[in-house]
Design a binder for these strands. Sequence first.
DNA 1: GAAATAATATGATAAAAATCATATTTAAGA
DNA 2: TCTTAAATATGATTTTTATCATATTATTTC
Lengths: 143, 143
Amino acid sequence: MLSNSSKYAIKAVLFIAVNSKRGKKVMVKDIANPINVPKPYIAKLLQKLVKEKIISSTRGPRGGFYLNNENFKVSIMKIIHAIDGEKTLKSCMLSLDTCNEEKPCPLHNILSISRDNILKHLNQKTIEDLSNDINLGQSFLPL
Amino acid sequence: MLSNSSKYAIKAVLFIAVNSKRGKKVMVKDIANPINVPKPYIAKLLQKLVKEKIISSTRGPRGGFYLNNENFKVSIMKIIHAIDGEKTLKSCMLSLDTCNEEKPCPLHNILSISRDNILKHLNQKTIEDLSNDINLGQSFLPL
DNA sequence: GAAATAATATGATAAAAATCATATTTAAGA
DNA sequence: TCTTAAATATGATTTTTATCATATTATTTC
């Protein structure tokens, strides 16, 4: 469903969200270890996220990654789209183009409600929402 | 979530289920095209399913694949496990070992209910259930 | 404005998944 | 029992995903 890359990206973004408060920036080398992802790999993903305006960065000494106010409003789905592309999550569980409500595939009837719920939540929840949860101790970022 | 291989396997099993009624067997070459999967590839998957006793086969002239009564009782999940392995679907959405109800990861709270529902349905529904749906015109096997 | 520090760009390598090809074995039917 | 038709076993190739490495560019600070 989600590629490793998307999972890494989500973890990294949330890590930045909770660790870059008040102008303090976070560097790649400080992200890679705690979220358990190889440094050069996460660096590449972060660059893509910057291009898509999902996170922000500055170069040079005291530089690093951070989130501005707009970044905080971005949905989790947008992170996934930036990394995995648009169509990954959209197709039906059997990847059938022809599957729809009128002509459902055999899995459609039993799975589509739950599936649509997952998509709905990924679209609704923002980086801000999830980092608030973490800050309130309602969820955790162990790695 | 599901690998291509699992999707192919599910499609193939259902195709066999609805096309091998009353002792008639289905051959690889007759499966590959309608379900839109390369023949040598689906052949390999079918062999694995036979070993796991999810489907049945006989060799030689008039041979092919079919389902016996026990095969029809197999859950969809078992097909997925046979092809993708046991752990693929079990891990949390961020693949965190440490994620659980007491210490949920940031996505856990928003997705776990829908996710558990999907797993529950995949465990409950049998090949028989889904092929009945198809036979009753409640779902379709276009490809 | 020079040195140091950080992201960025580019690309090489490795591992896994998907695809393709071929030789072997088994069973049926003449 | 010989021929044929089918699955089965094995493995080679290609593509995608994941990982690793290095050179370049921008920004701060002295």
